[in-house]
C-alpha cells in the first residue's frame, strides 16, 4: 500500500446504495477518485463504483473514507 493508505476495497453496488442512503448523499457528493488512479487500478474498480479507503490518521489512528470513481 502506498503512503498514507492502509486498505482499499471496492464496495458492492447494494452496499454502496445503503451507505449513501445512510449518509443522505448522492454519489457525486462523495470525494472523487479518477479511474486512472493507481489505487483504482489496483482494486479494479470501474467508473461509478464507490471505493472504501482506510487512511492513516494521527488523530484517529485509522479513518475510513469513501471515494466515488469518476472518469478521467
Amino acid at each position: 500500500m502506498p503512503l498514507g493508505v492502509k486498505e482499499v476495497v471496492v464496495i458492492e453496488r447494494e452496499e454502496a446504495k445503503a451507505l449513501l442512503r445512510q449518509l443522505r448523499l448522492k454519489p457525486w457528493q462523495l470525494p472523487w477518485i479518477r479511474s486512472s488512479d493507481p489505487l483504482v487500478k489496483m482494486v479494479g474498480a470501474k467508473v461509478g463504483d464507490v471505493v472504501k479507503i482506510v487512511r492513516e490518521s494521527q488523530t484517529a489512528g485509522e479513518s475510513v473514507v469513501y471515494r466515488f470513481v469518476v472518469p478521467g
Partner: peptide, 22 residues
C-alpha cells in the same frame, strides 16, 4: 509503502490521489 517524493504531482500520478493528500 513508505517511499515518497516531495513532488505533489509525481506522487499523485505514481501513488494516487490518497497519497497526494497524505
Amino acid at each position: 509503502a513508505r517511499t515518497y517524493s516531495n513532488d505533489l504531482h509525481e506522487v499523485e500520478e505514481v501513488l494516487g490521489i490518497e497519497s497526494a493528500r497524505a
